[in-house]
């Protein structure tokens, strides 16, 4: 294997990794703050892709210029976010009070509902919106073609990670959020409107998932059932990285992406098993994940 190919393989690995990362941080935020493990996150990711497809397709048919198409990505994600503002008060607000298994089951049900609704509305054929992908063209890296659009995804994911880190650790709002996550009652006593805060956080998590779906749409396509595979892989990333850890999500996702990419190049037979092998080794050696907090006695 020549060094040029190694570079391309690393880039490919990160391409895959970042899609998992974008879903996992949403999951982590929801788990970290509200203690809800949202299986429906995969459905929201898919919804982002489908809504963006609808927007882009309409815009492209109407002959709008390319910058309008770019605009479809955040708009599509925002629409998914609006959806969050509906389901959060209707469903999730009631789940916070219930036991975790109930919320798992309810979000599992929600995932099924999302998946089938998308199929009802958009039909079963895969939908693609290639305008942006083709418009960006390909770059030549060390003599190899590489789609330019992928760099948009890299830049975007890095921006999201940085933005979230600044938000959580450097702003007042982030401090309030972290405080509330640690002690909900205390925060409420100190005058924080926990209910609105939760809705905002939920919006943020869902918006990121929607953005993930939207930004990956030009490079892949939207199809019925697309939310299931990323959600279970994101669970794996979540466990490996440590529940609730932003850093863990990034590291674990990259690890899985890179191991998979090199696995395909060197041992094509192993593909899917690799991810879960990493998972099982992590579970045995370090069950709380790479950056997870130590388990408390209650959790034991």
């Amino acid at each position: 294997m020549d060094p040029e190919t190694v570079v391309i393989i690393i880039l490919n690995g990160m391409f895959y990794a970042l899609s998992l990362f974008l879903i996992t941080i949403g999951l982590n935020i929801l788990y970290g703050f509200m203690k809800v493990l949202n299986i429906a996150h995969g459905g929201l990711y898919a919804t982002g892709a489908f809504l963006t497809w609808a927007l882009m397709n309409t815009a492209a048919k109407a002959g709008y210029p390319i910058y309008i198409l770019w605009l479809c990505i955040p708009v599509g994600a925002f629409l998914v976010g609006l959806l969050a503002l509906v389901i959060e008060p209707l469903l999730f607000k009631r789940l916070y009070r219930l036991r975790e298994e109930y919320s798992l089951l309810a979000t599992f049900g929600l995932m099924l509902v999302f998946d089938d609704s998308l199929r009802m509305i958009f039909g079963g054929s895969p939908l693609s919106a290639n305008q942006l992908y083709n418009w960006m063209g390909t770059l030549t890296i060390l003599g190899k073609s590489y789609p330019t659009y992928n760099f948009v995804i890299y830049a975007f994911a890095i921006a999201v990670a940085l933005g979230l880190w600044i938000f959580f650790f450097k702003t007042k709002m982030g401090r309030i959020l972290r405080g509330t996550a640690q002690d909900r009652e205390m925060s409420a006593c100190l005058g924080v409107n926990v209910s609105i805060l939760y809705t905002e956080t939920f919006f943020l998590a869902v918006f990121i998932a929607g953005l993930g779906g939207a930004i990956y749409l030009p490079a892949t396509n939207a199809y019925s059932g697309m939310g299931f595979e990323p959600i279970v892989l994101s669970f794996a990333v979540m466990i490996i990285g440590g529940l609730g850890s932003l850093k863990g999500a990034l590291v674990a996702a990259s690890m899985i992406g890179l191991v998979r990419a090199f696995g395909i190049a060197l041992m094509p037979e192993l593909e899917l098993a690799v991810v879960f092998l990493i998972l099982i080794i992590t579970l045995i050696v370090r069950p709380r994940g790479l950056f997870g907090k130590k388990f408390t006695r209650e959790e034991k």
Binding site: V232, I239, A273, V275, I280, L283, P287, F295
Partner: peptide, 19 residues
């Protein structure tokens, strides 16, 4: 482990078996 950790660790095992 208990709670969500227990649930997810089991999820990991079923997926390994599936793979």
């Amino acid at each position: 482990y208990t709670r969500i950790f227990f649930g997810l660790i089991n999820l990991g095992f079923v997926m390994v078996w599936h793979a």
